[in-house]
């Protein structure tokens, strides 16, 4: 009997599954508590309309956060996601509203699928550039993406000439964004916002890659212990580049969804969203130093941020105070998370 009692002190004993649940379920528990509180605080919160409203508002951050999770899991950080989203959105919308002239050939206005594909391709290429700079020149991820963030905003300004797209000029000549794009941002199916459905699909795809593909495992290994990944024959540079490409791709998807919601793009759109995406990832329980976490948590993290926004609006909290509350919540959630990790992982 005595020996039985001493066993669980070693990790991996009977308590592991329960601890695991607590560790993984933490952000979800926080979300439930937040929702219960807001339902009691205001009658306008727990309505179906408001729920859809929240998911629509969270979709953009959620999609960015999925890609951001890949990067953070490798131990990196992608500050350029919002700039990539803006650039991809601008490229696609410009191609959809102004005739493309290349090397003297006039391609006219590109068909919507092609323009969207090019926008997504731009996102991937930006991600590849980030990853390549980091892998090739061995500079910190933070610095590299801080640089590309600024550069890509500049490129977006050049592409759009600093004007919103479609501009008044192009609109007067009959240019308009295709309805598919508008639907993706603002439409809904059976009341469920299409943007939220897309966010869910992106997150599931991310989950699938992390859980079932070699790349996912390599990402965890590189972030968990770079040197060990190298000794095991994993190509660290390639893994990093691919993680950044995925981040670039999700940023482009998010950018196009924002275009659909706003019916317009401009070079400075989604300002500050990179920090929000990082906050969503961290709130979702992914370790900022890499190696631990996942996209489902980030999805929950994005929704927590959305619910908080929405709740504070419903409670008529002044926008000045909203910033303070949001910032504090991020810090508190992470403090709680660290504490819980120590409790669950530290054993005795």
């Amino acid at each position: 009997m005595a020996s039985q009692r001493s066993l669980p002190s070693a990790p991996g004993g009977a308590g592991t599954r329960y601890r695991d649940l607590l560790l993984r379920g933490g952000p979800f528990i926080a979300l439930v508590i937040l929702c219960v509180f807001l339902s009691m605080a205001t009658p306008h919160f727990a309505t179906l309309d408001n729920m859809f409203n929240i998911t629509r508002q969270s979709a953009f951050t959620a999609i960015l956060a999925v890609g951001q999770t890949f990067v953070i899991l490798t131990g990196g950080i992608d500050l350029s996601v919002a700039a990539v989203a803006a650039l991809s959105a601008c490229v696609t919308t410009v191609l959809l509203t102004t005739p493309l002239v290349l090397f003297g050939y006039d391609f006219g206005i590109l068909p919507a699928p092609l323009a969207i594909a090019i926008g997504l391709g731009v996102g991937c290429a930006c991600g590849a550039l980030n990853g390549w700079i980091i892998a090739r020149f061995k500079i910190p991820d933070f610095i590299a993406t801080l640089g590309t963030m600024t550069v890509l905003r500049g490129v977006a300004l050049i592409v759009t000439d600093g004007l919103p797209v479609p501009s008044f000029q192009s609109m007067s000549s009959g240019a308009a964004l295709p309805s598919a794009l508008i639907q993706a941002g603002s439409g809904s199916v059976l009341g469920i916002p299409i943007s939220a459905i897309i966010a869910l699909i992106v997150a599931l795809a991310g989950f699938y890659i992390l859980r079932y593909r070699a790349l996912g495992r390599a990402i965890f290994a590189v972030g968990g212990n770079r040197e060990a990944a190298r000794v095991a024959g994993i190509d660290i540079g390639r893994t990093k580049i691919m993680a950044y490409m995925i981040s670039g791709l999700t940023a482009a998807i998010a950018g196009l969804i924002m275009v659909g919601r706003l019916n317009s793009a401009n070079a400075l759109m989604a300002d500050g969203e990179e920090l929000r995406s990082i906050a969503a990832v961290v709130i979702g329980g992914t370790n900022l130093f890499g190696g631990e976490g996942g996209v489902i948590g980030s999805l929950v993290g994005a929704v927590i941020i959305g619910v908080l926004n929405n709740g504070l609006n419903l409670l008529n909290v002044s926008p000045f105070w909203q910033r303070i509350v949001q910032g504090l919540v991020i810090v508190l959630v992470v403090i709680f998370d660290q504490w819980r990790r120590r409790k669950t992982a530290g054993g005795n």
Binding site: R211, Y212, R213, A214, L215, R217, A232, G233, I234
Partner: peptide, 18 residues
Amino acid sequence: GPNLSLPWLSNRSPWSAL
């Protein structure tokens, strides 16, 4: 498990199944 199988990933496509 993942620590044991890590070298299986070397020389394989990143998109291959675990």
